[in-house]
């Protein structure tokens, strides 16, 4: 789906989600939308630039990678103005950004419900086992390696 999206539609969508998240940030974390606006604009801009790079470069990597790397790069100490970027984006609580995402996820629930009813019980059981496996086993690996490397 990623390659089919129109840039204009995406920018509009990100702006709308940005506004919703600013209001959530206000309701849940008591930061006024005016104060958090510059930070939110930076976050939206990073995302759009990441998409732009994906569209320009011939390599077929997910846009998420470019977005992560840009965000990471412009907040490292060596980047000019990084302190300002960190301060402004710091006004946007990351949970305030996650709540709208899961609201959209919820509202799309009914779409796949029909497919779900056709599944057998085995595949449902295994789905939960698979998600448990990836989460719990990587947590165990992290815990063990933290202990061996003496972090805690």
């Amino acid at each position: 789906m990623e390659n089919n999206l129109k840039m204009k539609d995406m920018i509009l969508t990100y702006i709308i989600i940005g506004i919703i998240a600013l209001l959530g940030n206000w309701a849940g974390y008591h930061v006024s939308p005016i104060k958090a606006l510059p930070g939110m604009l930076i976050i939206v801009l990073i995302t759009i630039v990441g998409w732009g790079i994906k569209k320009i470069l011939p390599i077929n990597l997910p846009a998420v990678i470019y977005i992560s790397l840009i965000a990471l790069l412009i907040t490292t100490k060596i980047f000019p103005g990084s302190e300002w970027i960190i301060k402004e984006t710091g006004n946007v609580n990351f949970l305030a950004l996650a709540t709208p995402i899961l609201a959209y996820a919820g509202l799309s629930f009914g779409k796949d419900l029909h497919e779900f009813k056709k599944l057998g019980w085995r595949i449902v059981v295994i789905s939960f086992v698979v998600y448990t496996g990836t989460f719990v086993i990587s947590t165990i690996m992290a815990e063990l390696s933290f202990r061996f490397t003496g972090k805690f």
Partner: peptide, 13 residues
């Protein structure tokens, strides 16, 4: 991806 961008800005420092 907005969420990912926000996490990225926390990772830099």
């Amino acid at each position: 991806m907005l969420f990912i961008a926000k996490l990225g800005t926390m990772m830099g420092p």
